[in-house]
Design a protein around this nucleic acid. Structure first.
Lengths: 116, 116
DNA sequence: TTTGTTCATTGTAATATTACGATTAATATT
DNA sequence: AATATTAATCGTAATATTACAATGAACAAA
């Protein structure tokens, strides 16, 4: 810490509403093309993808693993161990919930907003 | 640079599609609660907001200015100089475009995705 | 002309994020 | 048991992001 009430590199989440923080956290998960690519791939596949994400996307295995961890922590995907490999897929229920939160934010009324 | 083909702290955007990168860039703009709060405030106001964002949100003026710059650079908001103050508002046209891009990503088909 | 107001810019401190090599853990396979 | 496979974790290097004080630029008002 330092002379500031909060360290400089850290977002001041406590001054915002829960909804504002929630929108930010979800959006941040979509804020890297690798995670977008992972999610798109999981949607494209009819079955679960068991670890071919590394060859599919083109980043090193630890990097993909790190991105998967973030998505799993947030709840957007689920991962099941199957022998030596792990089966990942979209968490439909949570995806729907988070989609609702983001959609509500995106769908704000645009009438009378062309004033500049 | 270093022994890696790309410096470590930098996203490898060139291995992803334009759409994937676009989704990531837009999402990243929503990835901080201050920017969410700014956008919500601009939506809430019927008229343009002329600089009361600092007192409204509770971050220092340079910090708000920095966030506004990012949103303006991306095209989500417009800023018009009016005397000594600056008038900000949502860029309706761009907002609609970006909403379509994100919505398409969020609206992917969820049927047969509960395999784990 | 001086003073005040408003906002952008610069500089800087600190944490966050991204990426990958090396290693570990767990399970299959031989 | 020994080996191979798969994915997580650890450690580390580098850039990105966040926040704010100090300053500057533009304009209004006195």
């Amino acid at each position: 810490m330092n002379k500031y009430n909060k360290p400089m590199g850290l977002a001041k989440t406590e001054i915002f509403t829960d909804l504002q923080n929630e929108i930010a956290v979800i959006s941040k998960a979509f804020g890297h093309p690798a995670r977008v690519a992972i999610l798109q791939h999981l949607f494209k596949m009819d079955t679960c993808v068991c670890g071919d994400l590394v060859s599919e996307i083109g980043l090193a295995q630890p990097t993909i693993s790190q991105h998967l961890k973030e998505l799993k922590l947030l709840g957007l995907i689920k991962g099941n161990v199957e022998g030596t490999s792990v089966c990942y897929c979209i968490d439909s229920e949570n995806w729907t919930k988070m989609k609702a939160i983001i959609s509500q934010f995106l769908d704000q009324d645009l009438s009378n907003k062309n004033c500049c």
